[in-house]
Amino acid sequence: MTVRVGVIGAGMIGQDHIRRLTEVVTGAAVTAVADVDAERAAEVAARVGAAALPTGADLVASPDVDAVLVTSWGPTHAEHVLAAIAAGKPVFCEKPLATTAEDCLRIVEAERAHGRRLVQVGFMRRFDAGYRQMKEVLSTGSLGAPLIVHCAHRNPTVPESYHSAMAAQDTAVHEIDVLRWLLDDEIVSAQVVTPRATSRRFAHLKDPQIMIFETASGVRIDLEVFVNCQYGYDIQCEVVGEDGLVRLPDPAAVGVRTAARHGRSVLQDWKDRFAEAFDTEFRAWVASVANGTEPIGPSSWDGYAATVITDAAVRSLEAGGETVTTDMKPRPAFYGGTA
């Protein structure tokens, strides 16, 4: 079976996923594209022989679309995801699932009412080989109970449009999701403190930021978010347990020895760092649609949890670094909880 995918949002990430679905992943075809910019939608659709449709609603309703990929502007995500659920069509939504916790819960309730999972959220790190190796080690229990997690998320630069709240909402959200998964534990509080600011930032931006999270079992997480580090795109993660630690491996790179120096290059872009994770993520999603099974990736509940936790981090930043408790609803049994 070839899964016919309709893509809502033909911007940079949408176009990259269209390339992935048409050139990398087998068993899928992009059959429809919609975007607020009709001219761009037509241009992108023409490249892959797809139809350009006027709206996301038209795309969801199309009989030529089996599954929906949402890569549009964040505030439009809830509308398109809810439409796909109402149509009974599987939907892959790039993060965020929605920009408010209330809209995330609307999606959760709609999916529960449908009776089976249709939604996968685009947190690709769960599909990264290094993180999966960490998960395997932690699952054995050989390190004892996790105690502390040290993380860093560094970008070389960000555009002037990037603002301080985006450090949590757009950047740290990836660590928030993958750590909930790695630890199989919920984050219950967030604190954001700001050290000395780098001179390499735009004046309105608080950078770097240090985020401190606590989980329900008492694990403490410290996360450095530094989006103007200059030297490259650098992701670090280390989980310290009672009997040892496990560290995320750096991407493979050749070592060069010359002129009395020994070193290796640092990646400059998140697309290069997680290219294989994106590919694996979409292979798994397409396979689940083709087989008629529920998706194995992050759920609507995971999207809700990430939004609640990033909201708490933003509130802490705005309150000058006070610790903010996450106000999360009990996890329903539908998503593996007890409520």
Rank of each mutant, 00 (worst) to 15 (best):
V158H: 09
P249A: 05
L59F: 02
D37I: 03
H80T: 04
V7P: 01
A203W: 15
P251R: 07
P251Q: 08
G241I: 09
A57E: 14
E136M: 13
A312I: 13
V33E: 06
T194D: 10
A339E: 15
S316Y: 13
A313P: 11
T2V: 04
R247A: 09
D302T: 14
G27V: 02
D272C: 08
V188Y: 02
G144H: 08
V289D: 07
H17I: 04
I18Q: 00
R220P: 08
G11P: 05
L179I: 12
V286D: 05
A252C: 06
E238K: 11
A29W: 03
W73H: 08
D103I: 00
A110Y: 03
A167Q: 13
V308G: 01
R154K: 15
L53Y: 03
H150G: 09
E160V: 13
G115C: 07
D184T: 13
G292F: 14
V239G: 00
F213K: 09
A87S: 02
A34Q: 06
D64F: 04
V3E: 04
V30Y: 00
F213P: 04
H150N: 11
T258A: 13
H114S: 06
V178D: 02
P332Y: 10
G11Y: 05
T100S: 10
A190H: 00
V239R: 01
P75R: 05
S189G: 05
A290R: 14
F226S: 13
L21Y: 03
V225R: 05
E94P: 02
D103C: 02
A84R: 05
I85H: 02
T325R: 14
N155R: 15
G122T: 03
N291E: 15
R4Q: 01
A152V: 12
G336R: 15
D66S: 07
A86G: 08
A216V: 12
